[in-house]
Design a protein around this nucleic acid. Structure first.
Ligand SMILES: NC(=O)c1ccc[n+]([C@@H]2O[C@H](COP(=O)([O-])OP(=O)(O)OC[C@H]3O[C@@H](n4cnc5c(N)ncnc54)[C@H](O)[C@@H]3O)[C@@H](O)[C@H]2O)c1
Ligand SMILES: NC(=O)c1ccc[n+]([C@@H]2O[C@H](COP(=O)([O-])OP(=O)(O)OC[C@H]3O[C@@H](n4cnc5c(N)ncnc54)[C@H](O)[C@@H]3O)[C@@H](O)[C@H]2O)c1
Lengths: 195, 195
DNA sequence: TTTTATCTGTGAAATATATCACAGATATTG
DNA sequence: CAATATCTGTGATATATTTCACAGATAAAA
């Protein structure tokens, strides 16, 4: 979108969108239609209008606060990469159980001891978290995140986490080793089908 | 599985598996049945046998080589975390375009300049790659990985990559910001449905 | 052995998702 | 203005995935 706007275009067709994201124009139209009739027959979708509508429906226009739990190698890499986050997500806190880590880490983002987790999340209204603690600690961490009222979690620890639907907390598991297994399975199955 | 074996159990029912991974016992049975009839009515699945069968069908018993492209913060975190990888995945190489990075990085895993990418992958038979270069470079990197005969890619760069089906290369995109957007969308939609 | 409990494998039914096809509205061209 | 090209929104169709229900096999108990 930004790319197209940069090129001076002010509207875009379902076909163009489809090509960009590798899906059929049918699907693009159908998906967009779920959030309302906002296209113009003959010319397509007005980009600014489309972005506004999607943003409103999906709550992407409001700024949301995020935190990182577990400031090891991976956690600090993410913490220090806030430029990666689009302007509606802000990492406002880091947590670790090791006081040593907290005291030695140099970053302009406030870092706290992990026992304050639930409290700080609640007080600051943090809605999103990235978990980068060792696997054995992740179960405990998610419980406390939920206790603090977290809404969404990206879990990098090697043990897959399931948030209970009842508590309305959504979690995505990012597991490199698991993904490697999945990818291997894909291409071995392909080979077994004779390739 | 290992957990259950540790407890002395030698077989497991679809029900028990389902509880562990939060899916219905129906689904467990159906999925397992796709790779053959290996269960025993009345007592369930013999764990050792089950693991062997799944491993063979999905190619998880053979050791596969992996590499990391882009040795920045994120890339080195992954490179230095090889304990994270189960014993059938081995990171055998790292790549970066900056000679400086390559020379200063301390690790026991060999690191190479990025222009050798395709060659080294082919010669060493590397099948899997993790991309952790800045977004603008990822398109080029994937082309060269494919050229070198890569089979699977986990892409951390912020631009989503699609491997062409024709070339039979599978890619998974791990995008934290994107996942945050997705999670936000989930819980805002829930709120709009009145919660 | 007989009875009862357990558990798999799978056809069938129910859902969900993706794809298609086209009426009808707008834009563009001459 | 008329004719043609473009493009959306959506009902209908097709495909895929989940869930269900149960026959029939094995194990355990009596
Ligand atoms: N750091 C994170 O937490 C994080 C999280 C999610 C995604 N990402 C994404 O991962 C990527 C890397 O993040 P980072 O924080 O490690 O950045 P970084 O700048 O620390 O590292 C990037 C590395 O890639 C190397 N590089 C650049 N061009 C290259 C090329 N053509 N070939 C080979 N190597 C090349 C650079 O020399 C550098 O070492 C970015 O796209 C970022 O958006 C980062
Ligand atoms: N490093 C990677 O590339 C990578 C990739 C994928 C997944 N992971 C997973 O991410 C997790 C972290 O990886 P890492 O390499 O950063 O490990 P790490 O050991 O460098 O960091 C773990 C950090 O978590 C902290 N911690 C431990 N228990 C805690 C608790 N109860 N509360 C708060 N903080 C606690 C530790 O003090 C440490 O700083 C691991 O589960 C790993 O399997 C890592």
């Amino acid at each position: 979108m930004e790319e197209l706007e940069g090129n001076g275009a002010s509207s875009v067709s379902s076909n163009e969108i489809g090509e960009k994201i590798w899906v059929g124009s049918h699907s693009v139209r159908k998906d967009i239609s779920y959030i309302g009739e906002i296209g113009t027959v003959g010319s397509g979708y007005e980009i600014a209008k489309l972005k506004k509508h999607i943003g409103e429906k999906l709550g992407l226009n409001v700024e949301r606060k995020a935190c990182v739990v577990g400031l090891g190698k991976l956690g600090t890499a993410i913490l220090q990469n806030e430029k990666l986050f689009s302007n509606n997500f802000k990492i406002v806190a880091g947590f670790d159980s090791s006081i040593n880590k907290i005291e030695t880490l140099v970053t302009h983002i406030p870092v706290y001891p992990a026992y304050d987790l639930a409290d700080i999340i609640r007080k600051q209204g943090i809605e999103l978290a990235v978990i980068t603690v060792p696997g054995h600690a992740s179960r405990d961490i998610i419980d406390r995140l939920v206790e603090g009222g977290i809404r969404g979690i990206v879990n990098f620890s090697s043990v897959p986490l399931h948030a209970t639907y009842k508590e309305k907390v959504y979690v995505s598991n990012f597991d490199i080793a698991g993904e490697f297994r999945f990818l291997s399975a894909l291409f071995t199955m392909e080979q077994q089908h004779h390739g």
